[in-house]
Amino acid sequence: MNRFALVFRLPIIVWQGLFFLGPLFFMIAMSFFLVKNYRMEEAFELKNWARMLTRGYVWDSYWYTLGMAGSATVVATLVAFPAAFALAFRVSAAVRRWVIFLLIIPFFTSYLVRTFSWYVILAESGVINTGLGTVGFGPYTMLNTPFGTVVGYLTLTLPLVVILQTVALANIDRNLVQAARNLGCSPPRTLVSVIVPLAKTGLIIAALFCFILSFGDFVAPYYLGGSKPPTLPILIIDTTKSGQQWPRAAVVAVMMMLTLFAIAATAIWLAYRRRSAS
């Protein structure tokens, strides 16, 4: 290999090795370190793991986070699907491009500020309750509830889910859909037996992204969900910031990564699995 090729190949290996793989492997190692007198010491002990895995509050957080991220994924998938369907089949390609461009905008507006807006909109004396109050309803408690958390998760993920679902649906072969209709297949049946199976890979990948983003988000459960119980990301922040217990936070982070690996592997297997002969 000549020098020219090396100059282009090496930088990313060095950079990501030092600053991407380095941090991740160090974090795994750190989960076995000890903290003595507020100072972290290199060690290989299972104490942090033993402590975190036997605490009820950790598992409460774990299942709560899994449940909330899972609910957000189901809700986002169901809410996005009709919208993506409309974009894929009921508008022209030019309109679709424009709408997708619009859907990219939210990624570049501060997610914190959008969450803060929801806080104001959903509060007891907020926009929605004031509006409902004038016609004699409410007030409803929406903040500090699972509902608030899911609204926050959707704020983060819904644009992406709509985009990915639209791309998946727009790319399926129209002739197959038309053939099903010509052979007398009803529209609902066409949807279930032809369109959804054909777009399966994209739909599952969209759901997977929604899950990963929700699972790792601390803003929505903290500000809109009231943090009761705290989700795993909030647990990481609390353990790191207030307790100086970085090794314990690392245990939670590694638990999260293992969970995500398992879920991503399952999702990808489902997404690319061929249907058995039927």
Binding site: L24, M27, M256
Partner: peptide, 8 residues
């Protein structure tokens, strides 16, 4: 997840 990258 960013929070994991942040801690690491």
């Amino acid at each position: 997840p960013l929070i994991i990258m942040a801690l690491a």
